[in-house]
Nucleic acid binder design. Sequence first.
DNA 1: TACTTACTAGACCATCGATCCGGTCATCCG
DNA 2: CGGATGACCGGATCGATGGTCTAGTAAGTA
Lengths: 218, 218
Amino acid sequence: MWSRPQRAPRQTLTLDRIVEEALALLDEEGVGRLTMRRLAERLGTGSTTLYWHVKTKDDVLDLALDAIFQEVRVPRGETDAGGPGDDWRVRVRGLMRGWRAALLRHPWSATLLDRPLLGPNALERTEFLYQTLTAAGFGAPKAAAYSLSNYVMGSVIMQVTWEGRDETGTGAFLDEHAGRYPALAEHGLDHEWDTTFDEGLGYLLDGMARSRVPRNDA
Amino acid sequence: MWSRPQRAPRQTLTLDRIVEEALALLDEEGVGRLTMRRLAERLGTGSTTLYWHVKTKDDVLDLALDAIFQEVRVPRGETDAGGPGDDWRVRVRGLMRGWRAALLRHPWSATLLDRPLLGPNALERTEFLYQTLTAAGFGAPKAAAYSLSNYVMGSVIMQVTWEGRDETGTGAFLDEHAGRYPALAEHGLDHEWDTTFDEGLGYLLDGMARSRVPRNDA
DNA sequence: TACTTACTAGACCATCGATCCGGTCATCCG
DNA sequence: CGGATGACCGGATCGATGGTCTAGTAAGTA
């Protein structure tokens, strides 16, 4: 009885549906409101049932986090228009921008970024990053990849942390202590997140460019 | 009855003692094991008592997180030995390294980095960062400061996330899927955290240096 | 002495993640 | 066709948590 097709499961509730609904719940109400009971209720089932498909709640969170990375487009075919050997810059910047944008589209992800990104979608993007850097002539793609990911993660966490808050209270607080923190009070709370991100990313890319050993392009 | 001294409180339990013990508990057992009951028990009191000094558990966490920043030395007086106007680089790099080291000394902090750093210790360091950058001639110190902080935070989170884990399981997992992720599998899991951090920090600083408008130094 | 304030604790509440136990139902085997 | 198997489901329940209610006690003030 070789390759017997495994018994067709009833599939009324699948892991995919759980993840899908978890993402919706997360998007609508945030990570604090995601409980197994509430998730089960939205799926029209009991909380116990979820545990047949999933071992712990952390599994759901891991799955949901990795699902975000599915939205990140991998800039594979993009060849540069002219710049000599700057292909990798375009690709890496595109990946990092997409990475950041996807996480910002789901702000609850910021709280979950302290867990290892080992899902297939995240791994695929990381693999692409390694390959792009290696092809560009970086002897130590790991260091470069870490620096870039770290920067993206930190930027997302910082932005989500500050954007979600009621700034009036914090602003008043800063004004109140303007004597102690003059420079902070002077520059206020509003911030151009996108341009700052691109700026820092450019610095990182510039610095890396100098330390790479070009391969067979000029 | 001017300047009546406020009634001397009994002070058998103070906020300082609570924060101090919370830090010890956090260091010893991690953020997951910090409960109000356990903390109260260590302090020889009941959990209810803590709520007289503190509004919620989040307050304890905020306080503990800010307490970490107390360990970060502010490199105030450090004048450079010779480099023309590179003072700010030395100071900023010193601050960022100290920032990172303090957080790494308390790995539980990585999980809490998704909350605003508005404690007095954190604010004092941030204020110093703004002042140093402004004095160095940066027209937009906020963008520079954000880029730097983001990078530090991301680096800490990434390192803590990976260092705490049992790498053998992850290593086996990667080996198993080496076909799908060849570049990842090739470079393995071990990593030189310190040098990578300094490298990326150098890139950031280099890039910023180019965009600043020098003030009155050469 | 009467009163206010600082402080403490035990019992209690709602809720959570997770499990136990007892089912149901489609499918496969004989 | 009929029993057995295993995928799937859910109510009740467990232990633990954050937080509150209620009821106090000790120390100072008037």
